[in-house]
Simulated assay, not measured.
Amino acid sequence: MSETTSTIDRIRALPKVSLHDHLDGGLRPATIVEIAAANGHRLPTTDPEELRAWFRDAADSGTLVRYLETFDHTIAVMQDRESLARVATEAVLDLAADGVVYGELRYAPEQHLQQGLTLDEVVVAVEEGMRRGEQLAAEAGTPIKVGTLVTAMRHADRGMEIAELALRHRDAGVVGFDIAGAELGFPPSNHLAAFDRLHGDDFPVTIHAGEADGLASIADALHTCGAERIGHGVRIVEDVQLGEGTDAHGLPNATLGRLATWVRDRGIVLELCPSSNVQTGAATSVADHPITVLKDLGFSISVNTDNRLMSGTSLSREFALLVDEAGWDLADVERATITALSASFLPFPDRLALASDVIRPAYASALSASA
């Protein structure tokens, strides 16, 4: 079944939690055009709607490497303090308008130094923009809380430097650390010293793994580097052998390997991104995306957008696609939302308040109305 407007509207009205959203992957096309005109960066087109379509088409290549090339244009317009703050503010407002009540936005400060900013100046500019976005969203009646994940590029050699940067700004909005970029050939353990430093200072870590590389990457992230969550992790399904039918508990008949068993039984949350995974070749379609069978097998899954601009998507759209094409219902949406909130790097009292005061009452009302 194709996506329907009514499904999106229904889900957009519900509170949601976003754990995996790249700041440089969610810019407004009109903003890109405006900043590029001011700084002299050449774009494929200067028409905002044509540019929106270009990003989506360029990302529909089926490979992660080609997908990542689209970021040359977004990063090019995020090189000064004012532009970084503006992009951050708009990202928060866009998430809030989509019904996201808590989000974690990630970005790599080392990619924003081309016009002379220091790493610390980059972080300060982004945090100022985030707080402004929260303020404007609250004034608009769509309150949202946002934390940032400072990311190191896995192919570079700045992991420790970026880890120290994250720690310096941990009380100003930075809530966690990540590594991102080309996965194959650049294992998480290349940055082991940085992860050890962060663990020693009780700082949360999530790691991109199991997207463009397989089980060894996930195991390295978990067992060697101590990740609390896995960014993507879709290829954990390579350690799951599906059988026919269901078992006595109604679960799909399946044999799990040791790593898949570890991930499921310990509740390691996977930051799954259905549309993005289809674009990069990690899944064939949203209908057949492993997220549904992983959900049914008892894995702890969250639903995410990855890069809203490149995928032409929103969190509401991702959930709507799962409802319309993969057979999800509102109870599944609520369960994934609570799972994401529980795995977030938001302090426990804040998580508890969001769950009890905002999320559960909204879904209880929606489920009652649909009964």
Rank of each mutant, 00 (worst) to 15 (best):
residue 131 R to K: 08
residue 3 E to L: 14
residue 280 T to D: 05
residue 309 L to H: 02
residue 229 R to D: 05
residue 344 S to A: 03
residue 13 A to K: 14
residue 145 K to R: 15
residue 369 A to M: 06
residue 202 D to M: 08
residue 146 V to K: 09
residue 316 S to G: 13
residue 349 P to K: 06
residue 371 A to R: 05
residue 111 Q to P: 01
residue 6 S to C: 14
residue 94 D to I: 02
residue 82 E to P: 02
residue 350 D to I: 13
residue 35 I to K: 09
residue 294 L to A: 14
residue 287 A to Q: 11
residue 223 H to S: 06
residue 18 S to K: 01
residue 24 D to Y: 11
residue 331 A to N: 12
residue 126 V to G: 08
residue 113 L to Y: 07
residue 348 F to A: 15
residue 128 E to Q: 12
residue 65 V to H: 08
residue 324 D to M: 14
residue 126 V to S: 08
residue 69 E to C: 12
residue 178 D to V: 07
residue 14 L to S: 09
residue 187 P to T: 03
residue 307 N to R: 02
residue 191 H to D: 13
residue 283 A to D: 05
residue 83 S to Q: 00
residue 201 D to L: 09
residue 125 A to M: 00
residue 149 L to S: 04
residue 11 I to G: 06
residue 151 T to S: 13
residue 189 S to G: 02
residue 223 H to D: 05
residue 70 T to M: 07
residue 12 R to G: 13
residue 76 A to K: 07
residue 319 F to I: 14
residue 9 D to K: 15
residue 168 R to L: 10
residue 23 L to K: 00
residue 232 H to P: 06
residue 185 G to W: 11
residue 350 D to F: 00
residue 361 P to Y: 09
residue 208 H to W: 06
residue 337 T to N: 08
residue 2 S to H: 11
residue 56 R to A: 13
residue 69 E to D: 00
residue 311 S to H: 08
residue 135 Q to E: 13
residue 207 I to S: 11
residue 260 A to S: 14
residue 155 H to I: 11
residue 224 T to V: 13
residue 101 V to D: 08
residue 57 D to S: 12
residue 36 A to H: 06
residue 225 C to D: 13
residue 64 L to V: 06
residue 12 R to Y: 05
